[in-house]
Nucleic acid binder design. Structure first.
Length: 770
DNA sequence: TGGAGCGTAATTTTT
DNA sequence: TTACGCTCCA
C-alpha cells in the first residue's frame, strides 16, 4: 500500500524532468555525481531527489544536505518544504555544520561552549599578536602571508608540529613558530577561526571511528552542492560522513570552480570516480536559461581550459541576439553607456531588476554607481564590506562577544576604549603584560585592576569599565535583542554615534538599530535563543547572503557573487588584461583557468542579453591607466558576437568577422592564438582599431605604450641590486612591466620581500661597483 | 592620553 | 583614491 503511493509520488516528481535529471532524481543508493552545467536545473534536481528519497521511505532526519552559503541553504529548505517534506532534514553550510558538530564534540577538539568565531579581521590581529610573541618583526614577514600559510596548513589538517617538520627554509620555520603561537592564542581565547570549523571536525572524524559510525547511522544520505568548491578539509569531512554507506550525492560544475585561491580543490570533483569507482555519473547539459548565442560564447570560451570535464551544453531556447562586445575610450564612457542602455530599456517597459552589472574587482563599482545615481536609477550593490563589517556593528558585536566569551581578548581590546573612556595604550599595555604573566584573560585583569602595581591613576577608569561589563553581563541574560539594546545604551556607544551623526557624520545609528531588529527577529524565530548562538550565526553570515535578486533595482556585483544567479540582461565590465584575467593570475602562482571560469560564470548568468565591455583607459586608484582588451575576448566565437565601439564623439558597430586584422602590427607574443582566420578585437591598446575617419581620436593609450617601451626599468632583471630610500639595499625577485606601472618584488636583507609599483617608489638601481 | 597629520603602500575574489 | 599605521604634539 505504502509502496504504491511512493511509486505514484515518484512518478509525479519525475514528470516534468528531462532524462538525465530523472536519472539523478530517481537514483537511490550509492555514490552519485551530478555534473550540472549552468542553468541546467541543478537545484531542482537536488530538491526533487531529496523529496524522492523521502517518498521512497527515507526519514528526513537521515538526510543531510550541505551547501556553501546560508542563502543556498535557506533556499533549499524552502524548496524542500514546498515539496511537502516534513521538517527534520538537515540543511547546513559546511561551516554551520562545523559549529553544530563542534558544539557536540567540542571537548574532543578542545573547545569550550560559547567559543568565539574569528573572522579575517580578528585573525589578522591574532597573527600580529602571535608574531609579536615570537618577536618577529612584521616587516620581515607580512602577517597576511603567515596567515595564508596557516590557513593552507589547516586545510591539510597539519598541526604546527607537522608543519614545522616539513619546513626547511627560513620563512617557513618562522611561520611554523607563528602558527604554534597563533594556535595557543586561539585556545587561550576559546576561539576558533573559519578554518578550524572545518579542520577540527575533520580531525575528530579522522581520529574517532565511533563518531564516524554514529554519524553514518544518523545521516544515511548525504547531498553536497557546489562540490567543485570543496577544499581538502571539506572533502575529508564528506568522505567520512559517507564512509559506511557511500550514499553521497555530489553536485557541481568543475567549470564553475572559482574559489581555488581559498583552497578549493577542483580535483575533488574531477576525481570523484577515483574515490568512488562504483559512482553513477549524470551530466546535465541542457540549459534552460540562456539563448543559443550566449551559450555558444560560454562553451567556446571554456573550451580553452585544460583542467576540466567536457560537457556539451545545448539549449532549446531561441538563438537570441549576439553577445555585444563594447569597447570604450574610457571607463567613464563604459559606465555612461551602460546606464543609458538600461534607461532606454526601462522606458520601453523593462524593470530595473532585469539588469545586473558584474565586475572582477569591487574597485570598479564606484564609477558605475555614479552613473546610475546620476540618472536617479535604483540600484543595489552586493559589496564585500557591508553590514557586519561596519565599524559600529563590529563594536557592538565585540561587547556581546566579551559577554558570551570572557576569554575573548581580541574583542575586549576593541571595546575597552570604545567609545573613548580614557583608557590609553599605556594602561592597556600594562594590563596585557600582567595578563601574560599571570595567565589571565584581559577581562579578568580588568576586574582586578586595583591589584596591578603599575596602574594607579587610570585604575579608576578601568574600574568603571569593569563595572559596566558586570552590569551588562546581568542584563544580557534575557532576550538577545535586550542584550544588544543594553550594550548600546550603557556603553555610551549609542550616545557617541548620535553625536557623530549630529556633527554631520554618517548615520551609523540606523545600522545599529538594524542590528537590534535582527536580534529581535532572531529571538522570535529561534526556539531556544541564546547570545552565543546568535553571535555564531552572525559570524557565519556573509554579505553574499544579503543579495536580493528580486528587488526592482539594477544589481551591481562581483563575478564571484554572481554564481548561482541569473538575469535577463547582464553586463560584464572591465574585460581587460590585468582585470579579467586578474594581475595576480597572470603572475607566477596564479591560475588563468580559474579566471576563465570566472568569465564563464559571468556569461552564463545572462538569459537574453549579454554585453561585455572594456575600456582603452580608466581611472585606477586615482590615476588614468591605459588598458588592454582581455585575452578572453579573443576566445569568443565570431558567430556569436557583435562588436561596438563607443568613443566620446563617435560610435560604430561591426559584426563579428568583418574586422580588418592587423596582425602584422602586433609583436610576435601578441599574435592571436589559434592562428586561423578570425576577427581581431581591438586589443593591446586598440592598435587594431581601423584608423578611419575618426580624426578626433587621439590614441593616448598607444602613446603611453610607446613611453613604457622606453621604461627606465628596462634593464632591471631578477637579481639586479637596487636601493630603496627606506629599506636600503635589496635584490629584484621578479619584475613585471605593465601599462603605466611596473611592478616588482624586491627582497631586502633586513626587511624581507616587498612588492612595489616602481613608478611610485623611491627606489634606484644600484650601479656596479658600489 | 588621544587626536591630528603625515608618509607609505597598494588594492581579488569570501565561507 | 584610500586606508592604514606611525609619530608628534597639545
Amino acid at each position: 500500500m505504502k509502496r504504491m503511493t511512493a511509486t505514484h509520488a515518484t512518478t509525479r516528481l519525475l514528470a516534468d524532468l528531462n532524462e538525465p535529471q530523472r536519472q539523478a532524481v530517481a537514483h537511490r543508493d550509492g555514490p552519485l555525481l551530478v555534473l550540472a552545467g549552468p542553468g541546467s536545473g541543478k537545484t531542482r534536481v537536488i530538491t526533487r531527489r531529496a523529496a524522492n528519497l523521502v517518498q521512497t521511505g527515507v526519514a528526513p532526519r537521515h538526510i543531510l544536505a550541505i551547501t556553501f552559503t546560508n542563502k543556498a541553504a535557506d533556499e533549499m529548505r524552502q524548496r524542500i518544504a514546498a515539496l511537502g517534506i516534513d521538517r527534520g532534514m538537515w540543511v547546513y553550510t559546511f561551516h554551520a555544520l562545523g559549529v553544530r558538530l563542534l558544539r557536540e564534540f567540542g571537548p574532543l577538539a578542545h573547545i569550550e561552549p560559547g567559543f568565539s568565531i574569528y573572522d579575517e579581521a580578528d585573525q589578522k590581529r591574532l597573527v600580529k599578536e602571535a608574531m609579536a610573541l615570537c618577536q618577529f618583526n612584521d616587516q620581515l614577514l607580512k602577517p597576511e602571508r603567515a596567515l595564508s600559510q596557516i590557513s593552507a596548513a589547516k586545510n591539510r589538517l597539519e598541526t604546527p608540529e607537522k608543519y614545522a617538520e616539513r619546513s626547511d627554509f627560513f620563512d617557513q620555520r618562522m611561520i611554523a613558530r607563528i602558527y604554534e603561537a597563533y594556535e595557543q592564542l586561539l585556545r587561550q581565547r576559546n576561539a576558533v577561526d573559519f578554518d578550524d570549523l572545518l579542520m577540527r571536525v575533520a580531525v575528530v572524524l579522522r581520529d574517532h571511528a565511533e563518531i564516524v559510525e554514529r554519524l553514518n547511522i544518523r545521516f544515511q544520505y548525504l547531498l553536497i552542492d557546489e562540490y567543485q568548491d570543496t577544499n581538502h578539509a571539506q572533502y575529508l569531512i564528506a568522505k567520512q560522513l559517507s564512509k559506511h554507506h557511500h550514499n553521497i550525492c555530489a553536485t557541481g560544475d568543475p567549470d564553475q570552480s572559482i574559489y581555488g585561491w581559498r583552497g578549493a580543490d577542483i580535483s575533488n570533483i574531477l576525481e570523484f570516480e577515483r574515490d568512488y569507482p562504483e559512482a553513477t555519473i549524470v551530466r546535465l547539459e541542457e540549459n534552460y536559461r540562456s539563448t543559443k548565442h550566449i551559450l555558444r560564447a560560454a562553451s567556446q570560451l571554456i573550451r580553452n581550459n585544460r583542467k576540466r570535464k567536457h560537457k556539451d551544453l545545448w539549449t532549446h531556447n531561441a538563438e537570441g541576439e549576439p553577445v555585444t562586445v563594447c569597447e570604450f575610450d574610457e571607463g567613464r564612457d563604459e559606465a555612461e553607456h551602460i546606464a543609458e542602455t538600461i534607461a532606454q530599456a526601462h522606458e520601453s517597459g523593462e524593470p530595473y531588476g532585469n539588469f545586473a552589472i558584474m565586475y572582477r574587482v569591487n574597485a570598479i563599482s564606484r564609477g558605475l554607481e555614479e552613473a546610475l545615481r546620476f540618472r536617479g536609477m535604483p540600484y543595489r550593490i552586493a559589496r564585500g564590506v557591508e553590514f557586519y563589517n561596519r565599524r559600529e556593528i563590529r563594536d557592538t558585536l565585540a561587547y556581546l562577544r566579551v559577554l558570551a566569551n570572557p576569554a575573548d581578548d581580541i574583542a575586549l581590546l576593541r571595546i575597552i576604549n570604545t567609545p573613548a573612556r580614557g583608557i590609553g595604550n599605556t594602561t592597556i599595555g600594562r594590563m596585557r603584560e600582567y595578563a601574560e604573566e599571570h595567565h589571565l584573560s584581559l577581562l579578568e585583569v580588568v576586574r582586578r585592576v586595583e591589584t596591578i602595581p603599575s596602574i594607579k591613576t587610570a585604575a579608576r577608569k578601568v574600574r568603571a569599565f569593569a563595572d559596566l561589563m558586570a552590569e551588562l553581563k546581568v542584563e544580557s541574560e534575557g532576550a538577545v535583542a535586550d542584550a544588544v539594546g543594553a550594550v548600546l545604551k550603557r556603553s555610551g556607544l549609542e550616545a557617541a554615534l548620535k553625536k557623530e551623526r549630529e556633527e554631520g557624520g554618517e548615520d551609523r545609528i540606523a545600522n545599529v538599530e538594524e542590528l537590534v531588529s535582527a536580534a529581535a527577529r532572531y529571538d522570535e524565530e529561534i526556539e531556544d535563543p541564546t547570545l552565543e548562538d546568535f553571535l555564531q550565526r552572525v559570524s557565519l553570515t556573509s554579505d553574499q547572503d544579503a543579495i536580493d535578486e528580486n528587488a526592482d533595482a539594477v544589481l551591481l556585483l562581483t563575478l564571484h557573487a554572481a554564481k548561482g544567479l541569473e538575469f535577463p540582461t547582464v553586463f560584464i565590465v572591465g574585460l581587460e588584461q590585468g582585470m579579467l584575467p586578474h594581475d595576480r593570475a597572470l603572475q607566477g602562482d596564479g591560475d588563468i583557468e580559474e579566471e576563465r571560469r570566472l568569465a564563464f560564470v559571468g556569461i552564463t548568468r545572462a538569459e537574453r542579453r549579454l554585453y561585455v565591455s572594456h575600456a582603452a583607459q580608466r581611472f585606477l586608484r586615482g590615476v588614468m591607466v591605459p588598458r588592454c582588451a582581455s585575452q578572453f575576448l579573443d576566445e569568443l566565437p565570431d558567430d556569436a558576437v557583435t562588436f561596438e565601439h563607443h568613443g566620446g564623439s563617435s560610435s560604430h558597430t561591426t559584426t563579428g568577422g568583418s574586422f580588418v586584422p592587423m596582425d602584422d602590427q602586433l609583436p610576435p607574443d601578441e599574435q592571436p592564438r589559434g592562428g586561423h582566420k578570425r576577427r581581431e578585437w581591438p586589443r593591446k591598446q586598440s592598435r587594431t582599431r581601423p584608423v578611419d575617419e575618426d580624426e578626433h581620436y587621439i590614441d593616448v593609450a598607444a602613446q603611453e605604450v610607446a613611453r613604457a617601451k622606453k621604461s627606465p626599468y628596462a634593464d632591471w632583471t631578477p637579481g639586479t641590486f637596487v636601493e630603496h630610500k627606506m629599506y636600503g639595499v635589496g635584490q629584484v625577485v621578479w619584475i613585471r612591466p605593465g601599462p603605466g606601472q611596473t611592478r616588482a618584488a624586491i627582497r631586502f636583507a633586513r626587511h624581507g620581500e616587498k612588492t612595489f609599483i616602481l613608478e611610485l617608489t623611491p627606489i634606484q638601481k644600484l650601479e656596479r661597483g658600489k
